[in-house]
């Protein structure tokens, strides 16, 4: 009775091993939810995926690594698929495959190029191997099953987002808060600012743009900039960005009283950058919070690290006492 059981167990082992056959992909390319997005500029850039296999194959079995516009598995790769590697037998268990999106596109019907492919298109990275038709003899069948994980999607996105618009500019102290509308999901909102330099405004061109003392009392000392315009030019471009859906883009470190020209752009997940929005102007203004008002009223508080340090020490003492109080045994 025991012998048949042992024999059954031994026969079952290869089938179990086959069930566990898998190829694991990893990549150094930027991916979001296992999706690698390529822009037109990156179309010929090499994408690298490392792979490693676990489990055993059927006798004489082959692992195909390829990129397809269809689904993984079923049949062997076809002409429109880009085959990356073919590994036969159990000897090789890992490797690296490299390819570019332009190579993938070239295999498609009509052989589009990076330039001629104008619509977004997605592909799958596949690893397949024949299924076992006989679990005792480990023979391969004519059908293939997908063994690659995770399921990477490769997307070619040649389309730049449409230009956004600037809905509102809120003047803040040494900052401008810019509301950008018509923003595509999963894109990055970029705003670019250029200070308007007046020929006689008293803003040295090398200082134009940001203010190292932004937010302090002397910010905005050039508040009368441009009162007698003679000629105009733009200072260096300052860039700020924020992910879509995270509220306004806030440009900080600006000079109060100086007018900035503002343009907004979008950068999608693939890195495609839209045209700039229409130009809007904004001017940061100095405002007073409580501490400004307090100091203006001749308040003597200096704040800062000294008292905070003392506070940390005091807080630590209070915390230690608290722990001591709460850890005393309950007296019955």
């Amino acid at each position: 009775m025991r012998l048949p059981l042992v024999a059954l167990l031994l026969f079952a082992l290869p089938a179990v091993a086959q069930t566990g056959t898998a190829v694991n992909f990893t990549t150094t390319s930027t991916s979001n939810n296992n999706t690698v997005v390529t822009s037109r500029d990156e179309c010929t850039t090499t994408l690298r995926f490392s792979w490693s296999r676990t489990g055993t194959l059927c006798n004489g079995g082959t692992v195909y690594l390829y990129v397809t516009s269809g689904s993984c598995g079923g049949l062997a790769p076809v002409a429109t698929d880009l085959t990356l590697d073919t590994v036969t037998g159990n000897t090789t268990t890992s490797g690296v495959v490299s390819f570019s999106m332009s190579q993938v596109l070239a295999r498609q019907t009509g052989a589009p190029t990076c330039a001629t492919q104008e619509k977004e298109v997605s592909f799958k990275l596949c690893a397949i191997t024949p299924t076992i038709s006989d679990s005792v003899l480990q023979t391969c069948s004519a059908t293939y099953s997908s063994i690659g994980a995770p399921a990477f999607t490769l997307t070619y996105d040649p389309e730049a987002p449409s230009a956004p618009s600037i809905g509102k500019v809120i003047a803040r102290d040494s900052a401008l808060s810019v509301q950008v509308d018509n923003v595509e999901e999963d894109s990055n909102v970029i705003i670019e600012l250029n200070a308007i330099l007046k020929a006689d405004a008293g803003i040295p061109e090398e200082d134009a743009g940001t203010d190292a003392d932004a937010g302090t009392d002397d910010a905005g000392t050039v508040a009368d900039a441009g009162t007698t315009p003679v000629g105009e030019s733009e200072g260096p471009t300052l860039r700020f960005n924020k992910a879509a859906g995270e509220g306004n883009v806030v440009a900080t470190g600006l000079i109060n009283g100086v007018t900035y020209r503002i343009r907004a752009k979008l950068e999608d997940e693939a890195g495609n950058v839209s045209e700039a929005s229409a130009v809007v102007e904004g001017t940061p203004v100095k405002s007073n919070g409580l501490f400004d008002a307090y100091k203006d009223a001749n308040g003597q508080e200096q704040g800062g690290c000294a008292s905070t340090g003392g506070g940390l020490a005091g807080g630590a003492v209070l915390a230690a006492l608290g722990i001591w109080l709460s850890s005393r045994r309950k007296v019955s």
């Binding site: 919070g289 409580l290 200096q302 008292s307 905070t308 506070g311």
Partner: peptide
């Protein structure tokens, strides 16, 4: 401990920062 903010940052006036403890 106390701190005073304007916008999203602690206020600074001259060399004095608007935070500390009393």
């Amino acid at each position: 401990p106390w701190w005073m903010t304007k916008g999203s940052s602690t206020e600074v006036v001259g060399l004095d920062t608007g935070k500390g403890g009393k």
